[in-house]
Amino acid sequence: MKDFKVLFTGSVASGKTTAIRSLSDIDTVDTDANVSDSAIRRKRTTTIAMDYGVLELDDTARMHLYGTPGQERFKFMWELMMSDLAHDAIGMILLVDNTRKDPFRDIKFYLEEFRDFIVRRRMIIAVTHSDLRAEPDLQHYQRVLKDMGVFTTVMFIDARVPSSVLGVLQELVGTEVAGLDWEGIGARLDSKQPELPQEDEEPAALNQVPLLQAAVNTRGITSAMYLDAERKIVDSTIKSEIKKELLCSMANLISALEKKAAFMGSIDNLVLCGEGEETLSVFVDTQHALGLCSEPNLTLNVLKQQAADLLQWSNE
C-alpha cells in the first residue's frame, strides 16, 4: 500500500474541516472546541489542534488528509505539522474564504507562514464560499496573484461537495499518483454524502452577529467601539469616559497621520498598554476602524489576529 499526504490550511472558517470530511472514507479525527474569539461571527466551533482523514484512492494507495487550525494562536500546531506529521506531504491546499474583505491579505499571510514548506512542494489555492460572495472572481485572483508574483493554480470549490474538493486533489497530485480513476472516486464519495448543507463550519449567512457584539464576545476583549472611514464613532459599548477619550485621541492621531504620512504606507493599528491597565487599541482599514479595550494578559499577537478577523468579515 502506498501512502500519500496532503496538508490543508487557510484562515479560520475557510472550510478546511468540511473539505477533509468531504473526502475522508473514515470518520475524521477533529479537535473542535466552542468558539471563543472573532470566529463567532461565522461558526460555533473551531479546530484547535488538527483535522485528519483518509481517502482510499484504490486498492494500492491512500491519501492522508491533514488540516491545520486557522487561528494564528495555534501556530505551534502549524509548525508541528510542517516539521513532523505532514513533513512528507506531497502538496498543500490553501483554502481562501471569498467572503473575507481582503482575501489576498490572507493569501499573503499564509504564503509567508508556510513559505519553507511550499518551496519544496506544490501548492494550490482553493477559493471557498463563492456561493455567498462571487467577487473577487477567478480572473481577479489570477491577475492579483500574478502581480504578487504567485504563479499557481486557483480553483473555486464547494468544500461540502466531495467531487469539488477531489478536483483540487487531482490537480495537486494527479501526476504523482498516476493511473487512478478520479471520476469513480468522485462518484463514490458524492454518493455517500447527505444533502447539503450539512456542516456546522458552513455559515448560513454572513454577519449573523454584529461586529461590536462579536468583538465583545471575543475572549479577552471587554468593550469596543466602531468607527467609520473618517474615524468618527458610529457605535460603542465602552462605558469608561477615560478609555473612550483615550481611544478617540488615538483615532484622531491615526486620522492625522493618514493624511500627513500617507506616502509611508497604510496604518494598521495603534496600541496603548501598561502594567495593570486594560490595553487600548485601534485597528483600521480603509473603510472603517475598531477601537478595543482588552484584558492586559491578552497577547498583542492574539489581539491583532482577533481584530484582523473581525474587520475581515465586516460589511458594516
Binding site: A261, M264, I267, D268, L270, C273, G274, E275
Partner: peptide
C-alpha cells in the same frame, strides 16, 4: 493624553507601512 487623564499606560506600538 494618557497622563492627562491619569492613566498608567506607558507603552505604545504603531504599525505603519
Amino acid at each position: 493624553n494618557a497622563s492627562r487623564v491619569g492613566a498608567n499606560h506607558n507603552e505604545s506600538h504603531l504599525e505603519i507601512g
